[in-house]
Design a protein around this nucleic acid. Structure first.
Ligand SMILES: [Zn+2]
Ligand SMILES: [Zn+2]
Ligand SMILES: [Zn+2]
Ligand SMILES: [Zn+2]
Lengths: 142, 142
DNA sequence: GGCCGAATTGAGACTCATTCTCAAAAGAAT
DNA sequence: ATTCTTTTGAGAATGAGTCTCAATTCGGCC
């Protein structure tokens, strides 16, 4: 789980500044256990004066710096989840957005499986998305 | 590789019809070896009178019927690749869009890895996206 | 061929996420 | 407080994708 402070610390690396809007966004995001969209955060914070562009800018920044995962599930398309410190992927419920992490740090089986082929054809892997979607126990029982 | 005829045959299942626009789309799509977007197909066929909506409708249909894979790579977001008959995934070059399939039919390691966790937490897996991206040999040398 | 009902079409309006623009406001550091 | 830079929000702009709907086209049947 990421803390508000941790998020702000990342934002203020390299001469970045800690601002009121960023504090609000950090709070809104920290400790989430389900996937969320930029729009949701915006709607939550708009009444407190945070602009749409700022929410998108800040979430993008956190994604670039590795604190947020960007998912592409279903048609709504983009949503975010907090990144655990180690590399991993998620089971994501398509109904409620809740998230279960899986995958072993530094030893992602997806990478291993694929590396052989990549080497053979001279392909340099830059990254991967793995998204497993379905329904969580709770959503199944409702 | 899918043939124009194969695509049209799928489209005309269940009372579907073979039309001039669909023939053009099937031709434009068949035998592609790189990922492509709906927009690209539209631009290619617009001069011949094919409407935007028709391109999107038809590609969606082919995706639903399993002939096209829908990818979510990079920021452009959606692009398509032809599906091989068996389940598999792709290495996709982020620069030129070329595609190398990988993964074993009916025995997807991603599914296997994840199934144990899913069972434990009562999650029912409905599907997964796996997208590995990077640069192909040719793009690296340019 | 000609007729009919169903499937499909294209133009254009529309939606909605995301980005852009730019002048004003707010941080940080001196 | 001053100055310089980063960040901000409002609103316009973009762009992918969808929707609507009247007009057209299919395919099957006589
Ligand atoms: Zn759920
Ligand atoms: Zn991985
Ligand atoms: Zn390439
Ligand atoms: Zn798979």
């Amino acid at each position: 789980m990421l803390s508000t402070e941790g998020i702000l610390a990342t934002l203020t690396e390299n001469g970045g500044r800690e601002t009121a809007s960023r504090r609000l966004i950090a709070q809104a995001v920290a400790g989430r256990s389900a996937a969320f969209t930029a729009q949701e955060i915006y709607e939550e914070l708009a009444p407190r004066g945070v602009g749409r562009a700022t929410v998108f800018r800040t979430l993008n920044l956190l994604h670039e710096r590795g604190l947020l995962n960007r998912l592409h599930i279903g048609e709504g398309c983009h949503s975010y989840t907090l990144c655990e410190p180690q590399h991993h992927h998620h089971l994501v419920c398509v109904r409620c957005g809740c998230v279960y992490p899986f995958g072993t740090p530094g030893d992602c089986t997806v990478v291993a499986d694929v590396q052989r082929l990549a080497v053979r054809v001279g392909f340099v892997v830059e990254g991967h998305h793995v998204e497993v979607f379905g329904r969580c126990a709770e959503c199944l029982s409702t």
